[in-house]
């Protein structure tokens, strides 16, 4: 059950999207998020969706993975959809008891749903095609100027790398501890909310104890290899922008600009 988490999962590959510089990918993803909100009109969202489908195809990531990463946010989607459907004032389509469905409501639901799906799918593409280590590396490089302002950029990115690295380990550990306590008759998935929260104590305490132990061991291992922070540290993989990065970035920016102006274009259409 805990193994089914897909958000943030990395799918190794050798497509142009995989090979692209992670800094460019990171910035373009942020750009895409912004543009999703700027171009929140039918034309803009259609273009955003097409862009996404093309990007997934180039990256050779199966589209059905999107449905998997969407699963956890289905409740949020439904909630916003229901709210918008019934509580947006405007011209009524039909009335059901005290609820009135309006054209404006329907329009909002459509825009919101597509936007959230694109948002999740777009950011997922970044993590699908970029390993967490490379991603934090990119983040460190992008934030490097902040080091001049005495922000511990390297330390922060090291913390992030370690945190990401230990998620699967801790999931495995949680699974093991849960099994061990279930073997002693613990009931973890039945009972009232209060009982369930109480039932988690036998799982959480050993988990924390082992997390602290692991932290200790890791710190020791890092010190044994003379780790002393970012100063004077060289890199195994140097990030270097290449021709591919410039071409892909240029194409993406062109599409983003188009989506950005889609609102104006949409207004010009004779509807």
């Amino acid at each position: 059950m805990l193994r089914d988490i897909t958000i943030g999962q990395h799918f190794p590959g050798n497509s142009p999207v995989h090979r692209m510089d992670p800094r460019a990918k990171l910035l373009l993803t942020i750009g895409y998020i912004v543009i999703l909100f700027v171009g929140s009109n039918p034309l803009g969202l259609a273009l955003s969706t097409v862009f996404l489908v093309v990007a997934y195809t180039v990256a050779q990531i199966p589209l059905r993975l999107i449905t998997k990463s969407l699963k956890p946010i289905v409740p949020i989607l439904l909630f916003t959809a229901v709210l918008n459907l019934f509580f947006v004032p405007g011209d009524a389509v039909f009335t059901l008891w005290v609820f009135t469905v309006t054209w404006q409501g329907l329009y909002n639901v459509m825009v919101l749903t597509v936007r959230i799906i694109c948002l999740i799918a777009g950011t997922s593409l970044l993590t699908y095609t970029t390993s967490p280590i490379v991603l934090t590396d990119a983040l460190e490089r992008l934030l490097a100027p902040l080091a001049k302002l005495k922000v511990p950029v390297h330390e922060l990115s090291m913390m992030m790398t370690i945190a990401l690295r230990f998620i699967p380990t801790l999931i495995e550990e949680t699974d093991k501890i849960m099994s061990a306590q279930k073997a002693r008759g613990a009931e973890l998935d039945t009972g009232t909310l209060r009982e369930r929260v109480k039932a988690l104590i036998p799982v959480l305490i050993p988990l924390f104890v082992s997390a602290f132990r692991r932290a200790d061991e890791l710190a020791m291992a890092m010190e044994c290899r003379c780790y002393h922070g970012g100063e004077g540290r060289t890199r195994l993989r140097k990030l270097q922008l290449g021709g591919l990065d410039f071409v892909l970035t240029a194409v993406c920016i062109a599409v983003f600009v188009l989506i950005g102006f889609s609102g104006t274009l949409w207004g010009m259409l004779p509807l």
Partner: peptide
């Protein structure tokens, strides 16, 4: 059956709480 069949896992000391 969990009470009938007692299972001691590897490194069971990690379950103490």
């Amino acid at each position: 059956y969990r009470f009938k069949v007692g299972l001691v896992f590897q490194y069971p000391e990690y379950q103490l709480f």
